[in-house]
Simulated scan of single mutants.
Amino acid sequence: MVVHSAVPPGRNLPTHARDLVRMHEAVIGGSRPAVPPRPLVSRSWSRVLSLGLTADGMNARDSVPGDEVERRRHGSPLRHVIEDLRQVVGATSDSAHMLLVVTDADGIILWREGSSAVRRKADTLGFVEGSEWTESRVGTNAIGTALAEAAPIELLAGEHFEQNQHPWYCTASPIHDPRTGELLGVIDVSGPALTLHPAIGALVETGKRLAESELWRTHRQRLERLRQMAEPVLASGPALVVDEDGWVAHSVGVSAGERIAAPQAGQVVAVPGLGACLPEPIADGWLVRPADTARTVRLDLDLTPAPLLSLRAGDTGWRRPITRRHAEILVRLEKAGRDGLSAVALSHALYGDAEHLVTVRAEVSRLRRLLGAIVDTRPYRLAEGVRMTVHAGQ
């Protein structure tokens, strides 16, 4: 998805910015504006107004302390790409008027880069490291609205809900983990409203793609190092070596796809083609070998108000609660059989439309972290050798 410009083609930037401020005054004042707000702005304002936020001034800010910011930075995969993002924005001729901000998935600002002048202006808004920049805290803004809409957003002047943000533009795009589809955070470029350039959206999109590409490259490098280290251990199969998230670095005697369920010490993991396996920790990953001669994996899904999933392969297995959404996905996949479901079809099945592809992919990713290769992709379906029985419950 690309960032759509906040300035319509052919419109003069200063004139349009003034019109947007008048639009804000009219809508908040209860009258009809000459320029109606864009649909995404209307949706956001409706959400913000329902939360009781005020438009005339600055709502109370919420932030986390410095040690929590450091903890979140250390735990974020985006720490590996922040220097690259700095270079992308710093290489532009207008970088002195820009503020680069990177948040985590909660909208907490973890990194902020820019000239001292633009940072001082941002300070007056509470647009600082550690601050939570979600719609529920600061109203309509590119970061919070990108999180709420699960899409790239550009806002200008009066499209911001708070009047104190009207002197600004902001352009933001969510960044996802290319391995799992999980939301990692948001990249945002902001600056004085009248310095907005048509290329800002492309700059943010470039930064987002660079981040996701670099994360994927780093992931492949880690798997290759794990493969080289573990190759002597896999002299005889069948067996797999996987990383801490279940991504397959090397396999002998079995084709298990790209990923299995994330291993945990002492817990049986089911791998189609291998059956029940007991992972053994090695260096930065796990050695996965069969714990039983049975190769068929059997699932029992009990649709109680709190769904329970049981897994059995031979004499070993486990039983654990799963979310109702994951239970519904499994039921849909079981009904689809070997034909499976595309992301679009699963979105229609779960939500009644094709507008929830990001949500669907994230939910399936979380389910695959639990079950691994038991759920195939392209299309989504239960893997070969997996049998599932659904019990309707009460």
Rank of each mutant, 00 (worst) to 15 (best):
E258C: 00
E258H: 00
R259Q: 11
R259I: 07
I260D: 01
I260T: 00
P263G: 11
P263Y: 03
Q264M: 07
G266C: 00
A270K: 00
V271I: 02
V271P: 02
P272R: 04
P272H: 02
A276S: 06
A276R: 01
A276I: 01
C277D: 05
C277N: 01
L278G: 00
E280F: 04
A283F: 09
A283K: 01
D284C: 02
D284L: 13
D284A: 15
D284P: 05
D284N: 13
G285P: 06
W286A: 08
L287H: 08
L287A: 06
V288L: 09
P290T: 09
P290W: 04
A291V: 07
D292P: 08
D292H: 03
D292T: 12
A294N: 08
A294L: 02
V297M: 10
L299S: 05
L301F: 10
D302P: 01
D302Y: 13
D302R: 13
T304M: 12
T304R: 14
T304I: 07
P305Y: 12
P307W: 10
P307G: 11
P307N: 11
L308K: 13
L308V: 15
S310A: 15
S310M: 13
L311V: 15
R312W: 06
A313F: 03
G314C: 09
G314E: 10
D315M: 13
D315I: 12
D315Q: 13
T316H: 12
G317S: 10
R319Q: 15
P321E: 12
I322E: 07
R324C: 03
R325W: 05
R325M: 14
H326C: 03
H326M: 09
H326T: 08
H326P: 10
H326V: 03
H326F: 07
E328C: 07
I329W: 05
L330D: 02
R332K: 15
L333F: 10
K335H: 14
A336E: 09
G337E: 14
G337F: 11
G337H: 10
D339Y: 09
D339E: 14
G340E: 10
G340K: 03
S347T: 03
S347A: 09
H348L: 12
L350V: 12
Y351P: 11
G352K: 13
A354L: 03
A354K: 09
A354Y: 04
E355N: 09
V358F: 04
V358Q: 11
R361P: 05
E363M: 05
E363N: 07
E363D: 09
S365P: 03
S365F: 07
L367C: 04
R368P: 04
L371T: 06
G372A: 05
A373Q: 04
A373I: 02
A373V: 02
V375M: 01
D376H: 09
T377H: 05
R378M: 11
P379K: 06
P379M: 08
Y380R: 08
